[in-house]
Amino acid sequence: MFRPFHVGPAGPTYRGVPLAPEEFTWPVCGDYCGGPMQFFAHLPVEYGVLSVFVCQNDPGACDLWDATSGANRVLLFPPAGLVPVAVPEKGVTLLPAVSAITTRVVTLELEEDDGDDLPPDAYDLARSGWKREPGERFGKQREVIGSLGGSPSYLDDDRLPGCPSCSGTTEFAAHLEEGIDRQTAMNLGGQLGYVFVCRPCSEGAFLTG
Rank of each mutant, 00 (worst) to 15 (best):
3 R>Q: 13
144 V>D: 04
92 V>H: 08
190 G>Q: 12
12 P>G: 06
31 D>V: 04
199 R>S: 12
20 A>T: 04
61 A>R: 09
71 A>L: 08
135 G>A: 02
13 T>E: 03
160 L>P: 02
145 I>K: 02
66 D>F: 02
95 L>K: 04
144 V>E: 05
122 A>F: 07
190 G>R: 08
88 P>S: 12
73 R>Y: 05
74 V>I: 11
113 D>A: 08
185 A>E: 11
155 L>C: 06
145 I>P: 00
40 F>T: 00
188 L>S: 15
137 R>D: 05
137 R>H: 06
188 L>G: 13
126 A>R: 13
206 F>G: 03
187 N>Q: 14
129 G>T: 03
117 D>K: 10
63 D>E: 06
178 E>C: 09
140 K>R: 14
181 D>K: 01
7 V>S: 05
104 R>K: 06
22 E>R: 15
161 P>G: 07
122 A>H: 13
117 D>C: 09
93 T>L: 14
206 F>H: 05
102 T>N: 06
40 F>W: 03
158 D>M: 12
37 M>W: 13
159 R>K: 13
164 P>F: 07
20 A>G: 08
109 E>R: 09
7 V>Y: 09
120 P>N: 08
79 P>D: 15
92 V>I: 09
63 D>R: 10
28 V>G: 09
37 M>T: 12
47 Y>G: 01
119 P>T: 14
11 G>L: 10
195 V>W: 04
51 S>K: 00
15 R>D: 02
49 V>C: 01
79 P>T: 15
79 P>H: 14
203 E>K: 07
3 R>H: 09
147 S>N: 10
43 L>W: 00
164 P>N: 10
132 R>P: 02
198 C>F: 11
75 L>I: 15
137 R>N: 04
168 G>K: 15
85 V>G: 11
182 R>A: 10
134 P>Q: 05
101 I>G: 06
17 V>M: 07
40 F>D: 00
174 A>V: 03
22 E>P: 06
147 S>T: 11
24 F>R: 11
134 P>S: 07
49 V>T: 01
15 R>A: 05
27 P>S: 09
181 D>C: 01
11 G>Y: 11
208 T>N: 00
95 L>Y: 01
171 E>I: 11
40 F>H: 00
11 G>W: 07
30 G>M: 13
157 D>Q: 10
50 L>I: 15
45 V>M: 03
80 A>G: 02
170 T>C: 05
144 V>G: 04
140 K>Y: 10
39 F>A: 03
23 E>H: 14
37 M>I: 13
197 V>A: 12
177 E>A: 14
59 P>E: 10
182 R>F: 08
198 C>V: 08
76 L>V: 11
1 M>Q: 07
195 V>A: 04
60 G>E: 06
181 D>E: 07
